[in-house]
Every structure is written in C-alpha cells, then in structure tokens.
Simulated scan of single mutants.
Amino acid sequence: MTFHIGAKPGEIAETVLLPGDPYRARWAAQTFLKDARLINEVRGMLGYTGTWQGHPVTIHGTGMGMSSLSIYVNELIRDYGAQTLIRIGSAGAMQPQVKVRDVVLAMSACTLTAPSNGIFKELNFAPTAHFGLLKAAWDAAERLGVPTHAGTIYSSQLFYDERPDLQEQLQRHGALCVEMEAAELYTLAARYGRRALAVLTISDHLLTEEALPADQRERSFGDMVEIALHAAFA
C-alpha cells in the first residue's frame, strides 16, 4: 500500500490504463476487462484489475490535472512496478481537421508548467510518447477504422484558461488538442524508463464550440480504450 493506493502487492498489472475520471475507470474495466475486481478506492480514486485477451490489465483513475496524475503515476511505477502506462482521456480540438469523436495520439505534449519542470531549471524538456506504443496505436486505429490524428498536443495546467493569445499560437503551430495530463505522464515515463502514450477522444471543439452531450461521452470513448489495449499488447 502507498499513501494514495490501497492495492496489495501483485494486485496491479504491469500495463495500466489511466483515465482521469474514476467512474470512467470503472466503466472501462466493466466494459473491456474480464473478471475485473476493485483494487483501490482510497480517496474515491477507483482502480480495477482484470484481463484483456488473457493479458493482465489495471485501469486506474488519476484525477484531474498534472499534479494529481503525478501522484498516482509515481506510486504506480515506484511501488507497484508499472511498465506501460497509457492515458485514456478527453480533449478539446484545436484544429479544423480534428473532429468531435476523433481520436488523437499525442506524439509530444507541450506545457507552460508541470510538476516536473523544476528539475530541468532553464531547460525546455520535450516530453514525447514511446514510439513503439504510438506506432501500434496508429496501426490499431487503422484496422478498427477509427478517424485518428497524431501530433503535438497541449497539456494545460488550467481548465479555465484565460490566455487567448496562447491558444492562437498553439493553433498556429499545429497543436491538435488540449488536455491536462499527458506532459507530466511522458516526463515521468522518461525519468523511470517506462513506456507511455496518451490516447485521447475529442469531446469538444474550441473552434466550433461543438461538444458531446454527457450521455454520449462513454459510448464514444470505447474506440479510445480499444486502441489503447491493442497498442499495449501489439
């Protein structure tokens, strides 16, 4: 057990999918895993372990934002031996060619600040995905016929961001979407020598203001979870 994860030794798989929302973790585990069992509920952050096509998989919530994700990913890696960590979450599109319900694979994640930034001091470290996972996810998306984009994303430290000038520059430089966790996940994976990827479903659009209704989000997120699972065990 750790401060934030109550799982016993051996209850967390080496492959971990990481939604921000603990209820999405429960939904994904019940939908995609066989014999899923609850292994953590400390502070209401739910984690489940089961199998997918015979492979052990844990699906564990991280909460919202890089600071919260950093807590869980550090403990999953250091205390439970997680080797492959794939974020499955929602994002807001920033480019006209990226549509609501599309999937985005984050090749790299830029950010203004993250919990790990202090380590690098004046260096602008560039957090990137594990190439093997990225390629496997792209191949899986093509096989499944899911509209998918790969490129740079923006990990914001704020949900209500009041920097329209920054949004304009990110769009100008091709950032596909905005979310709140991937940059720290990629940095921690690099630090510990683990594999990481962010597979994101577009739930809303910053240009068109289109958004998925709440009752449609879970149904639309199934493609993202399936891509992540195929990528993890390619």
Rank of each mutant, 00 (worst) to 15 (best):
R87T: 15
R87H: 15
I88Y: 07
G89R: 05
S90K: 11
S90W: 10
A91R: 00
G92A: 10
M94Q: 04
M94F: 11
Q95P: 08
Q95W: 06
V98R: 04
K99S: 14
V100N: 14
V100W: 06
R101N: 13
D102K: 01
D102I: 04
V103N: 01
L105I: 06
L105W: 00
A106G: 15
A106W: 05
M107T: 01
A109Y: 14
C110N: 06
T111N: 10
T111E: 13
T111R: 07
L112C: 15
T113W: 02
T113L: 00
S116R: 04
S116A: 06
N117E: 10
G118V: 08
G118M: 03
I119Q: 09
F120H: 12
F120Y: 12
K121V: 07
E122V: 15
E122P: 10
L123I: 12
L123V: 14
N124T: 12
N124W: 15
N124F: 14
N124G: 15
F125V: 09
F125T: 05
P127D: 12
H130N: 07
H130P: 05
H130A: 13
F131R: 06
G132E: 13
G132A: 10
K135T: 10
A136Y: 01
W138T: 02
L144N: 04
V146A: 06
P147C: 08
H149N: 08
H149G: 03
G151K: 01
G151V: 01
T152H: 00
T152F: 01
I153E: 08
Y154F: 14
Y154P: 00
Y154E: 02
L158R: 00
L158T: 01
L158M: 08
F159G: 03
F159E: 03
Y160R: 04
Y160A: 14
R163E: 14
P164S: 04
P164E: 01
L166H: 11
Q167C: 08
Q167F: 13
E168G: 15
Q169S: 11
Q169D: 07
Q169G: 04
L170A: 02
L170I: 05
Q171K: 13
R172P: 06
G174M: 01
A175E: 03
A175H: 00
L176E: 11
C177M: 14
E179R: 09
E179D: 11
